[in-house]
Amino acid sequence: LDNNQRNQQQQGFGDVPDELPLQSEECLVLMLEKEFQQWPGVNYLNRLQSGVLDVGARYEAIDWIQKVQAYFGFGPLCAYLSINYMDRFLAGYELPKGRAWTMQLLAVACISLAAKVEETSVPMTLDLQIGESKFVFEAKTIQRMELLVLSTLKWRMQSITPFSFIEYFLSKITDNDDKSSLTSSIS
């Protein structure tokens, strides 16, 4: 039993095989695996479509995230990550029903985390709450929500995004071996 538990644990923590990926093809496989692991899943899509989860509230939150992104001049990856965190959270955690502020708090926590992961200059969490949001949260509340998001997503915040694949595809369409010049030319 002990061993069994250990294995399950290992699977819980472990995500990628131990082999050393050397080729870009292997690296691609690794990225695809990771992308799959962080996919919210069909079940989540069904719950959105069938109305178990509130699609409208999700769109509202996304709309607000994009406003914050534009206001502070965050990059597209930051908005992408925020939405990725939000979907993964909603897939794994049931927010209390009928309380609109929970979605707003989740959106604040997600963009706050994404900005910290992705942006070089990040405003205070309190100042992220721009626009006419109906709810404004205290710093302490946002921090607790951040922690809840982090533990629900098992701290896997380095998400694989479409941006992760850019370099691979660029290397496919050119014969140029000098990857450094490629990456710098798209920066």
């Binding site: 995500d15 990771k34 910290k116 969490t125 710093a139 951040e146 896997r156 915040m157």
Partner: peptide, 27 residues
């Protein structure tokens, strides 16, 4: 007053992506 700081976020989320015999494993 600013939530989970970048240093901790970055540190832990990078550790979470790693799984290799020559890297100290975060259980």
């Amino acid at each position: 007053s600013n939530g989970i700081p970048y240093s901790i976020l970055n540190h832990v989320s990078i550790l979470k992506t790693l799984n290799h015999p020559n890297i100290l494993k975060l259980h």
